[in-house]
Design a protein around this nucleic acid. Sequence first.
DNA 1: CTGGTGGTAGACCGACCTGTCTACTTTTGT
DNA 2: ACAAAAGTAGACAGGTCGGTCTACCACCAG
Lengths: 190, 190
Amino acid sequence: MSPKRLHLITTAFALFYQKGVHAVGINEILAESGVAKKTLYHHFGSKDELVLAVLEYRDVCFRNWLQSRLEAAPVGIEKIDALFDALDDWFNDRVDVLLPFHGCFFINVSGEYSELEHPLHQQCACHKQLVVELIRKQVESFVADCEAVARLTNALSLLKEGAITVAYVQGDRTAAVKAKETARMLVAAL
Amino acid sequence: MSPKRLHLITTAFALFYQKGVHAVGINEILAESGVAKKTLYHHFGSKDELVLAVLEYRDVCFRNWLQSRLEAAPVGIEKIDALFDALDDWFNDRVDVLLPFHGCFFINVSGEYSELEHPLHQQCACHKQLVVELIRKQVESFVADCEAVARLTNALSLLKEGAITVAYVQGDRTAAVKAKETARMLVAAL
DNA sequence: CTGGTGGTAGACCGACCTGTCTACTTTTGT
DNA sequence: ACAAAAGTAGACAGGTCGGTCTACCACCAG
């Protein structure tokens, strides 16, 4: 990958994540990155294509980070703690690679492209699905029953999304801790 | 309230909710509503003021609807079923007053005004807090212990937000049902 | 040494943005 | 009855939008 291309993507991501996609113009990305307009349109056919590339980039960053956090935990219900501990670090800006917390980029972008059929919304949906799979794989490592795996994966995904929303919209940085408590009550019930 | 003012608010809400705030211009709202530009700027000092009024309007609509749904349920854990049944109706477009589902308007707007200090973001945070209080009041109707009320309210709020996100971003209209199942597992544990 | 690739700087295009303004009409309260 | 308030249509201003284009430069492989 061309370094200029990567630089455009990282700069665009930082701006989009902070201000929203529609609120950031091409010219602002160019000024911030110091790249020429022609170069941008050499790498990306349109702003939407750039946004798509940014989504793909963030997807890789985020899932790599989360996966490594989950895999670092010992097999068992500690995986659940690891999930919400990771979220807690994210919400409280202790994860450099994710940049300062401004909610979930994919939820934010979905809000700006609300038709499910829109390619950018679909990319967001795809990311969320991949994260669910990631969680499911961890759950499978310590739950045998197939039904129970599905139920716990569902529950953890819902709590995760809820925690992100509460942390972001209400600015409650303790949301991950609360979600962790809820998850523990849940596993105690199984 | 002037009928023109209300008409502007409802028209603006429909457009903002469908396309996002930044994606909808003043002129589009005027064309759709058939109101003159001067009239809009007579009632609202700026676009941001209109957005604020729209947030207040949606807040009232949404909480009135939810409150009536929750109060209609018999006291007890049926209140929990009522919460997620209401969400299910919302997600599947069976609630006319809420308009076709495009996620939570307040989450979407927060995504476009990401600084917590921004008045529009604060309005969104305020709405979420009021909904939490609404849920808490219902929980208090059938849970005595103060600690337990707080825990259950937290859990239900997280599941509610998670369900909204999953329903919207992934287009999973069954999210409320899944959240309801999770909530039931939770209360079974208490 | 030459042609392709990737790059820079920035003028330019038509469209659209928020917001102001003039000039005129309708409605309403006293 | 009459003035104030609320409404209409729409031109206009200054700026930004995404995107195209010209003209030029630096590098490197055949």
